[in-house]
Write a protein that binds this DNA or RNA. Structure first.
Lengths: 345, 345
DNA sequence: CCTCCCTGTGGAACCGTTTGCACTATATGC
DNA sequence: GCATATAGTGCAAACGGTTCCACAGGGAGG
C-alpha cells in the first residue's frame, strides 16, 4: 500500500538500514548516499510510519490531557481552552502531539488513562486540577508514569506541578481594594474542597489581618464556579444589615452573576459595590462594566506544564528538575474597582 | 520491562497466538483456556501495547482535529471548546482518541497533517471551517485521507461535511425581528470571504425581500468575528440619519461589542435597538441584557462530525453514507429582542 | 472402519522501523 | 609493509502484536 523504507532502499540500491540512518541524520552516511536516498524518498513520496517507529523506540512522542469529569461546566470552557492552547503550542514546539481525554466516571477515567499510558499510546499526562482524593493521581503515581498536575496536591507535595501562588494572589487582590479605601470587604469563595479556594481565602484573610480589619464569617460565602453562585452570594450580601462595599470573587463567571444580580436590583458597579475577581478570562473584559481581575497566566500554566512534562519524560526519573513551578499573577484593574467608598464606615 | 503477550503465554502454558485470540474474543478458544489466560493477564498486570496493535492492524483508532491558524481569536475559544467537547465525547464513545493539532503557517499546517495522516498516527481528520482556498483540504483530498469539514466547501461540494443551514437560520432570525414589527433592520456581517457570512447575509436578504422591505447597502456592515467589530458597527449605525431599530449580528461576541458601545452612549437595549445574534455561546446568556441568539448546536456539530468521520474511516470508500449533514438551528429569545418599535417608520 | 468436518491450538511470517554487530575498503602510524 | 583505526554499509534480530496455515483429536456420517 504505502511506500516503506524497504521500497526506498530497493530503489536507491542500498539497504533499509542505510535509509533509516539517512532519516536519523546518522553521521556515518556519506554525502552522496544520503542525497541519493533523499531524492528517492521525494520521488516515491515516502513518509515514515510513526507507529513502527514508536514500537521500536518505545516512545510515542505524544502526551495526553485529562479533563476532569465536570468539564461541562460553563466556566471551565474558556479556562480550559486557554490552557489547552498553551499545552498544545508548547508540545508541538517540542515535537509532541497532544491527545485529549475527557473522563466519564472516575472509574472510566482511570481505565482510559491506563489504556493510554500502559498501552504506550502516550508518554505522559497532564491533569487539570486534581481533586482532594484523585484516583487518577494515585494510579499514575503507582505505575510510575510521568505526569504533571496543574494545581497542586496536598496529599503528595512532591508531585510535579504547575500552579499559581494563590495565597499571594488573593492577598494582592484584597490589598488593592484596601488601598482604595475599602474597609468592609467580602469574599465569594469556590467549593471548599478545592485547594485553590482555601488558598485564596487564606490570602484574603492575611490581607485583612495585616490592615487591622476583622474577618467576618458572614462576609464569606461559599459557592460553585458558576454564575448562579455569584447571583446568590450577591443577594445574600445585599440583604445584610451591614453590607460590604467591595467583594473579592473567586472566578470571573461568578462575578458575572454578581453583576447581573446587582443590575437587576438597580445597584451600580463600582459605585455601590466594587469587585475584584480571578482568572481574567475574556469575559471579564467584555462585561458591563468590565471587571478587575487577577490574571493568573492561564496560557502560561498550560505552556509550562507541557514543558515540564516533556522534560520529565525525556530525562526519565532524573530528579534534578524543579518539582513545583509557580506562574506569576498580575492584577488587571478595570472599571469594577475604581471607586473609593465614602468614609461612613 | 512491561509484560507482553509472550509473558502471559508462557505463564499460562499456551502460545502467544492463543493469548492474542483471547484478547480479541475469538470464538475458537475454549472456555477454560480463555479463563486461564485472563487470570494470568490480571495476575501479571498485562496491558496490550496499542502501538504494536496499530502497526499490524494499520489503524490507530484515533482522529485529529485541525484548529485553524487564528485560533488565538477570542470568539473562537468558546465555540471551539464546545465543538471539541462534542468531538471528543463521540469519538471516545466509538473507541477513538482525539488528537489536537493547532496550525502555525499554512505550510506548517499541511506538514503537520501530513505527518499525522501519512505517518499513520491518526486515521482521519476534522477540519474546522475551511477557508475558501484551503491547502489542507487539497492535501487530504489528493492523498485520499478520510476527513470531514465543519462548515462547507464551495470548491468541492462533494466533501463530507457537517454544517448548519445558515441561509435558513439567518432568514429565521430576521423574520423574528420582522414579526416583532421592525421594518428597519441592519446586518452586522463577518469577513466576506467566509462562506458562513455570505450564507447568513443571503438569508437576511431573503427575509427582507419576502416582507417587502428594501435591502439597504448602508445597513449592512462587514467586520471580523471580534468585539471591536461590533463596537465599530454600532457607532456607524447610530450616526446614520436614518437608523435601524434592530440588528442581526453574525456572532455573539460581536453583539457584545455592540452592547458595550450602546451602553457607553447611553442607549438602551432593547428599547433603542433590538439585537438578534448567532451561535448562542454562553456569553449571550450572561451579558447585560442577555442576547437573543440563534443556537446552531455547536456541540452537535462536533458530535456529528466525529461520528461521520469514524463511519467513513470504518467503511472506507463506501459512498453510501451521507455526504452533507445539516444540524438544526433554534432561536433562543432573550431580552435583547422583546421590544416592539413604535410606528413612525 | 474410513473419510470428512469441526474444534482448539501452535508455528511462523509479517507489520515498518531501529540498531548492534560484522564486514570491506581505505587511510594512518610506525 | 604491516597492524590498526576509521568511514561507510549491510545483515539480522528485535519491538509486541495479529493472522494464515497446519495439525491433532474426536464425533458424525456413510
Amino acid at each position: 500500500m504505502s511506500v516503506t523504507i524497504k521500497d526506498v532502499a530497493k530503489r536507491a540500491g542500498v539497504s533499509p538500514s542505510t535509509v533509516s540512518r539517512v532519516l536519523s541524520n546518522n553521521s556515518r552516511i556519506s554525502r552522496e548516499t544520503s542525497q541519493k536516498v533523499r531524492d528517492v524518498m521525494k520521488e516515491l513520496g515516502y513518509h515514515p510510519n510513526m507507529t513502527a517507529k514508536s514500537l521500536v523506540s518505545k516512545t510515542s512522542s505524544s502526551i495526553c490531557v485529562i479533563l476532569p469529569k465536570p468539564a461541562e461546566e460553563l466556566f471551565l470552557n474558556l479556562f480550559f481552552m486557554e490552557l489547552i492552547r498553551g499545552i498544545v503550542t508548547q508540545a508541538n514546539r517540542s515535537g509532541y502531539d497532544v491527545l485529549i481525554s475527557s473522563g466519564g466516571s472516575e472509574k472510566e477515567e482511570v481505565e482510559a488513562v491506563s489504556r493510554l499510558l500502559n498501552g504506550k499510546r502516550v508518554d505522559g499526562a497532564i491533569l487539570l486540577y486534581s481533586r482532594k482524593e484523585d484516583p487518577v493521581v494515585d494510579f499514575l503515581r503507582q505505575n510510575g508514569h510521568p505526569f504533571v498536575l496543574i494545581g497542586r496536591s496536598e496529599k503528595y507535595p512532591d508531585i510535579l506541578s504547575v500552579d499559581n501562588d494563590n495565597v499571594q494572589a488573593a492577598y494582592d487582590a484584597t490589598k488593592h481594594l484596601i488601598s482604595l479605601g475599602h474597609r468592609r470587604i467580602g469574599f465569594v469563595s469556590g467549593p471548599p474542597n478545592h485547594i485553590v479556594s482555601r488558598d485564596r481565602l487564606k490570602g484574603y484573610r492575611n490581607a485583612l489581618e495585616e490592615a487591622g480589619l476583622e474577618t467576618r464569617k458572614d462576609w464569606i460565602v461559599e459557592g460553585e464556579f458558576l454564575q448562579e453562585s455569584g447571583y446568590r452570594a450577591m443577594s445574600f450580601f445585599m440583604n445584610l444589615p451591614e453590607r460590604p462595599t467591595a467583594l473579592v470573587v473567586m472566578d470571573d463567571l461568578v462575578s458575572l452573576g454578581v453583576l447581573r444580580g446587582l443590575h437587576e436590583l438597580g445597584y451600580r458597579v463600582p459605585d455601590d459595590l466594587c469587585i475584584v475577581s480571578f482568572n481574567n478570562i475574556s469575559i471579564s473584559e467584555l462585561s458591563t462594566p468590565p471587571i478587575s481581575s487577577m490574571d493568573i497566566g492561564i496560557y502560561n500554566l498550560g505552556y509550562t506544564a507541557s514543558q515540564a512534562l516533556i522534560q520529565s519524560i525525556q530525562h526519565d526519573g532524573d530528579r534534578q528538575f524543579q518539582k513545583r513551578h509557580i506562574i506569576p499573577h498580575r492584577l488587571v484593574i478595570r472599571e469594577s474597582s475604581i471607586f473609593t467608598p465614602s468614609k461612613p464606615s
